[in-house]
C-alpha cells in the first residue's frame, strides 16, 4: 500500500516540476519537453491508482486511460515539434518572444 502511495505522490511532484520548467525556461524545446514531463507525472499517478485496490490484480481501466493519454501527448508533441521547427526556420531563434526581431 505504501509503495503505491509513494508513486502517487511522485507523480504529482513530477507534474509540478514539469509545470515549473514550462514557465521557467524560454527555449521552446525545453518547454515542449516540460509538457511531456508534466504528462508523465499524470500518467505515473494514474498507473499508481491502478494498483491501489489490489496490487496483484491491478485495475485495467487506468491502463487504458494512460494509453489514450500517451497517444494524445505523442501527437501533441509531434505537432509542437513541427511548429518549433517552423519558428526556428522563420526567425532563427528558438524562443516565443518575437520582440527582438
Amino acid at each position: 500500500m505504501k509503495t503505491t502511495m509513494l508513486f502517487s505522490i511522485a507523480g504529482i511532484a513530477v507534474f509540478f516540476i514539469g509545470l515549473y520548467c514550462l514557465m521557467a525556461y524560454r527555449h521552446l524545446l525545453k518547454k515542449i519537453i516540460a509538457v511531456n514531463v508534466m504528462g508523465t507525472g499524470v500518467f505515473l499517478f494514474i498507473v499508481s491508482i491502478a494498483a491501489r485496490a489490489n496490487i496483484l490484480q491491478p485495475d485495467p481501466v487506468p491502463h487504458a486511460m494512460v494509453l489514450t493519454g500517451i497517444v494524445v501527448t505523442v501527437s501533441a508533441t509531434a505537432f509542437g515539434l513541427a511548429l518549433f521547427k517552423r519558428i526556428y526556420y522563420e526567425t532563427g531563434k528558438p524562443y516565443l518572444d518575437n520582440e527582438d526581431k
Binding site: G69, F84, L96
Partner: peptide, 19 residues
C-alpha cells in the same frame, strides 16, 4: 505555439483531476 502549450497545460490539469 503559445496556444498549444497553454492548452496542453489545461488538458493535463483536467486529466489530473479526472485521475
Amino acid at each position: 505555439m503559445r496556444y498549444l502549450l497553454i492548452s496542453m497545460i489545461g488538458s493535463l490539469c483536467y486529466l489530473l483531476g479526472v485521475a
